[in-house]
Amino acid sequence: MVLGNYKTCVAARSTDKEILKGAQDGGIVTQLFAYALEEGIIDGAIVAGPSDEPWKPEPIVATTKAELLAARGTKYNLSPNMSLLKEATRSYGLDRIGIVGTPCQMQAVRKAQLYPIGMRDVPDKVALAIGIFCMENFPYQSIEALVEDHCNVKMESVTKMDIGKGKFWAYTERGAVAQIPLKVTHKYEQPGCHVCLDYVSNLADVSTGSVGTPDGWSTVFVRTKIGDDVWSKASAAGCFETKEIESGKTGLELVTKLATDKITKNQKTLEGRATFGVGKGLRNPYL
């Protein structure tokens, strides 16, 4: 169950060159939202847009393809997309909301739907929740340190960041690529990530990530009825090029392995927290 419930799992990438150009992987998120927007399945989507500081995301409600395009790509620091979920139904006037987020943000979406304690009139307005895979996230200042101190690159000149093949990568405008081993990045991680028990956004309608597929492609899990509906329509409309996901070492097996590793490691953290201190303990959010 480390991969959650899903109806289908495929390798896919967008057929739209423009989307692919600035997308992190196969442009699944941007493409699916663009399609849903065009078809009126959603009125807008909450994505991690640009802000005044380089690589610091600012949650925005995108209601045009241009705004979706401007928010492509992974920012390895916090984008509190949930903070706009209620406001999207208020001053933005949305009735059908798309939202992208990490696994923990997908958990937040579902909690908001089942326990809408401060989320009046939100539960039935979530029309498409797209989850991304996530091993960990970082505070903004951590990313600054990794890029500027460890990779020796200015934040402004970075064109893409990536984590993969055991390394953290920073690509720059002039084609230079800096990389550092992940063991350097660990201390910079967000502490809250160490109790996280979800790698592949089990609670999303559709979830996607790079692991499991070749460069430029994405692994896609279609999970819910809503997700299945949108995914099949979008596929039928020619939005995606798809192929079967590999079952071998670099395919689904790798996804399963990473998910298992993450969950096992973080279960241990949770156990350790239970007896933290002397005769004391730290809180377990899952009890």
Partner: peptide, 23 residues
């Protein structure tokens, strides 16, 4: 050590007392 910066709290607050600063 449990916050992961989702922003649910800010959305929930009925008096806009919560803003998200650096996540």
């Amino acid at each position: 050590g449990l916050c992961m910066g989702c922003g649910s709290c800010a959305a929930a607050c009925p008096v806009r007392a919560i803003s998200m600063e650096y996540g």
